[in-house]
């Protein structure tokens, strides 16, 4: 028994280690040149804090996706009907408001854009996004969506801090407004991690740092909080897209484990009973 417990500890340690380790392709400095005033670490993504059980958020995300994204980015492994059922949107309402072509509710979410032509327009075919959250992680998507800024040197007039020189136009620009990459006076960081002060006057020392993103006021229809929330909803929807059966899977899993616990306890008692014969 003592050994079994020891083994259990070892195995759980290994599992914890595996789960905590992030092998995503985006590991390292996952978010390119993105720099936020909160973290001050270049390349660190903002946390998306998505909640796949938040149905209203998923519904809003689906609405944004169907309106702004589905023109170019298919979800070709998933079906409209499944989304409508999982997100609690009545079929007829979904059909009327969220399917814009003549597609049927049971179909996969293909798009009409020709991929070869798309390549000549954007330099690359816009990828299918069904599994994007699995590939990049939700934090990456969330940060990416917020990181477009005006850059007149680019063919489409915008660039992105997370994915430099991306071929995608900023389709959400009228919501967010005109965002620019700016320089700011920020506090200098001392060796001990605190704010560096002038040893004589005790004044906090400042330095100029570039690469921060700032929206020009009054240019977008949403304010910062509203826009961030919208992108969180959209990211949540993409997270759901990658793993639509997560909720069902985990609820089945609970019953399976309960059954196994009872089975294991009973088989342990049986084992103990038979073991008595041996000594």
């Amino acid at each position: 028994m003592k050994r079994i417990t020891l083994l259990a500890f070892i195995v759980s340690f290994i599992i914890a280690f595996l789960v905590s380790n992030n092998l995503s392709a985006a590991a390292g400095s996952p978010c390119g040149h993105y720099l936020s005033e909160e973290s001050m670490i270049e390349g660190q993504c903002d946390s998306a804090q998505v909640d796949p059980t938040d149905i209203p958020s998923l519904q809003r995300g689906a609405q944004i996706y169907m309106n702004y994204c589905l023109g170019c980015h298919s979800l070709k492994y998933a079906r409209y009907k499944r989304v409508s059922e999982d997100l609690g949107i009545p079929l007829d309402m979904f059909q009327e408001n969220l399917i814009f072509g003549d597609q049927k509710i049971g179909e996969l979410m293909h798009i009409g854009m020709d991929s070869k032509e798309a390549k000549t327009w954007f330099g690359n075919t816009p990828p299918d996004l069904t599994l994007e959250a699995g590939l990049r992680g939700t934090d990456w998507i969330y940060t990416y969506l917020k990181s477009f800024y005006i850059d007149h040197s680019r063919p489409l007039g915008v660039n992105n801090k997370v994915y430099e020189n991306v071929g995608m136009p900023n389709v959400l620009i009228h919501l967010q407004g005109d965002q620019y990459s700016v320089c700011k006076q920020v506090s200098m960081i001392a060796y001990n991690g605190g704010i560096k002060q002038d040893p004589l006057s005790g004044k906090q020392l400042k330095e100029e740092k570039c690469g921060f993103l700032e929206v020009q006021k009054g240019t977008g229809t949403l304010n910062k909080e509203e826009f961030d929330q919208s992108m969180r909803d959209l990211t949540n929807f993409l997270g759901y897209m990658t793993d639509p059966m997560k909720k069902e899977r985990e609820s089945i899993g609970v019953y399976v484990l309960l059954y196994l616990f009872i089975f294991t306890i009973l088989s342990y008692l049986l084992y103990i009973e038979f073991k008595k014969d041996l000594h």
């Binding site: 599992i15 789960v19 905590s20 380790n21 092998l23 899977r249 985990e250 899993g253 484990l257």
Partner: peptide
Amino acid sequence: CTIMFFYPDGGGY
């Protein structure tokens, strides 16, 4: 079953 139902991609492993 813990891995299969709750951490199916095992942190990318």
